[in-house]
Design a protein around this nucleic acid. Structure first.
Ligand SMILES: [Mg+2]
Length: 231
DNA sequence: GCGACAG
DNA sequence: ATCTTGTCGC
């Protein structure tokens, strides 16, 4: 039996109504900020989700969890979250030091139905989330100046709505697409991503999650560091 | 109809 | 990066 996209579309529309686009009343300056990324193995057959928890503002790795499960959905633009959510939800379950804010690799409400992966995770796990995407999925914007931290609004021209920001997070790099996921304003989403930048294109939580999910040199370095700390 | 299209 | 699938702008 195949995937019913019409059904998933309707689910997104229903869920999107419940997204909160203002700052959570209980949301103050976070002590812990999380980051997520997902990778694939066995030619796409295995989904590998990684969640990292960093201290803020020191950006020390506090905890990370990795979950591998069989992949249940192909990648379909606009439906990414159904592919990645199950593994990410399990990884979240395993996290013991729950962060107050989660930076998710992908769009928040900058999505055709205002329900990207960051919104999906935020709503179903009931946490403030920010979508940090490397490329545009939806929305219009003017060219972003090359000067670091330059940014442009990301707009939905259908209803003249602000759905995110395009941020030049680092000189000579392509900009990032930042949008509210859940329980946070566009302004704060942009602000927190900027506050998590540390000399790289990606904000630290996302960069660390990328490293863990793909077993990159940075992750090996972090492992060695924590081994030293416990030795 | 054709190209774009989060990861 | 890919793609059967959908959806959008042109
Ligand atoms: Mg990724």
């Amino acid at each position: 039996m195949s995937i019913n996209l019409a059904q998933l579309k309707q689910l997104q529309l229903d869920y999107a109504h419940r997204i909160i686009l203002h700052d959570d009343v209980g949301f103050k300056t976070p002590t812990l900020i999380g980051g997520t990324d997902v990778g694939f193995e066995n030619n796409g057959g295995i989904t590998r989700a990684a969640i990292v928890v960093l201290s803020y503002p020191s950006f020390e790795l506090v905890e990370y969890q990795v979950v591998k499960i069989p992949t249940t959905m192909p990648y379909i633009p606009g439906y990414l979250s159904f592919r990645e959510f199950p593994a990410l939800a399990l990884a979240w379950q395993k996290i013991t030091c729950k962060p107050e804010l989660l930076l998710v690799d992908g769009q928040g409400v900058a999505h055709p139905r205002q329900f990207g992966i960051a919104s999906h995770l935020g709503l179903l796990l009931d946490i403030p989330t920010i979508g940090v995407a490397k490329r545009r999925l939806y929305g219009q914007y003017e060219p972003v100046a090359q000067v670091p931290l330059s940014c442009q609004p990301l707009l939905d021209n259908h209803n003249n709505t602000l759905i995110g920001h395009v941020l030049r997070s680092k000189a000579k790099c392509n900009p990032l697409f930042i949008s509210s996921g859940h329980r946070i304003s566009q302004r704060s989403a942009l602000n927190w991503v900027i506050l998590c930048l540390n000399g790289y294109r990606l904000p630290e939580p996302t960069r660390f999650a990328d490293a863990v999910a793909s077993n990159k040199p940075l992750f090996q370095k972090l492992l060695a560091k924590s081994a030293n700390a416990t030795a």
